[in-house]
Design a protein around this nucleic acid. Sequence first.
RNA 1: GGAGAAAUGGCAGAGCGGUUGAAUGCACUGGUCUUGAAAACCAGCAUACUGAAAGGUAUCGGGGGUUCGAAUCCCUCUUUCUCCGCCA
Length: 423
Amino acid sequence: MLQIPYLRENKDLIVERYAKRNLDAAETINQIIALDDQRKSTQQSMDQDLAEGNALAKQIGALFKNGKASEANELKEKTKILKEKSSAEKTKLQEIEEAQLNLLYLLPNVPNEIVPNGNSDADNKIVAEHGEEVKFEFDALPHWELAKKYNLIDFELGVKISGAGFPVYMGKGAKLQRALINFFLDEAEAAGYSEVIPPHLVNEASGYGTGQLPDKEGQMYHVGEDDLYLIPTAEVPITNIYRDVILKESDFPIKNCGYTPCFRREAGSYGKDVRGLNRLHQFDKVEIVQVQHPSKSYEALEGMVKHVASILEKLGLKYRIALLCGGDLGFTSAITYDFEVYSAAQNRWLEVSSVSNFETFQANRLKLRFKNEEGKTELAHTLNGSALALPRIMAALLENFQVENGIKIPEVLVPYTKFDKID
RNA sequence: GGAGAAAUGGCAGAGCGGUUGAAUGCACUGGUCUUGAAAACCAGCAUACUGAAAGGUAUCGGGGGUUCGAAUCCCUCUUUCUCCGCCA
């Protein structure tokens, strides 16, 4: 959520940047500012009436103490009028604030200057590419066939137990999955991230804090009975650790990582490219989260990008990095780099990580602040990234490392899997 | 799930209808003293909105109510603790 003083002072710039998202928000911003003017004037007159009422109450108290009941009762009449007035003003104020908040919820984060214009992933800018293409001298199989051939993942069984998009990992498939989680967590820890195991269900306030609500309501599983949401990413519970927190400057940098399953309804995304592990309702992910001083957040973003790149290099996967264009940029993000690995049998790029700087957008909702050098509270910056999402890594590993009679395990994973080949 | 108790500032803990944004202690920050440190003493120390400032307003778990006036009374929700039941 954007801050109103920021909207006031940078209206033209914001409107210009929103063009990257193909969004014309000039009118909305004007409305918000107009409501804010109303809010201020209403607040002022209400405060004034309340102040008068408070002063009268004091006088009445003093009069009663001195036994001047009739004078006190006269004053009571006055307070009655003031009270009616101030309560009407309070109602009006609440209406204004609600209207304003509803408009503010419509505004996405302001894209960073370097975010390219564009409508779809076709307009994303590839900023780096690394690794060798895999060549096969036999007919390479897509991962869902490999998974079946070597008994690694049973998709039909998942359908039976839960439904489509809930695969069952078995045997060496399960071991490989667990190996990847541990490898990713160890890499994160080595990079200075402190591990947390957060709850997998979150309340409404947490959903609002990181921006999944009210925007993406339909994308989360909702447990109605208890009014809880299954997390779509560890970003939600981990970032919400810092909701309503005032940090000291010396607390920076805050770096957390965590493994969780992620649950996504993926409503409306059936159809193409959903075979196998490409798109699931439940998947595993190791997430890295940072809370940063505003002056350090872009440096931190760069560090996160390097971290993700280094993991992919250790695994020996060909990857590329895309700077998302405005049209593809998430609602809460100011800038996002997507990582895609090349899936050699499907012959396509699979998104495996998304690294974003939210600047103050989440912090504003979270009330995540710090005391700056002058002792004033200021919003912190939040960032996060997948490091990494498991299914598509699994898919790429199976496909890219298949040999004629099995699948090789990348060297860095062997200490975790305790086997170096699936056959 | 049943019965009871409680929720106050960073922490501990007073206050239980009036001038209390809140005693006191600890912690923290600045100062005096000291060769330095400790101790002692003095001062400061919540958040938000608003205002050029002085100041004003709101907040004692959340919401609502009673009252001229609520941290204090009532209702409700949430959370925590104790006991019983159930249970990985």
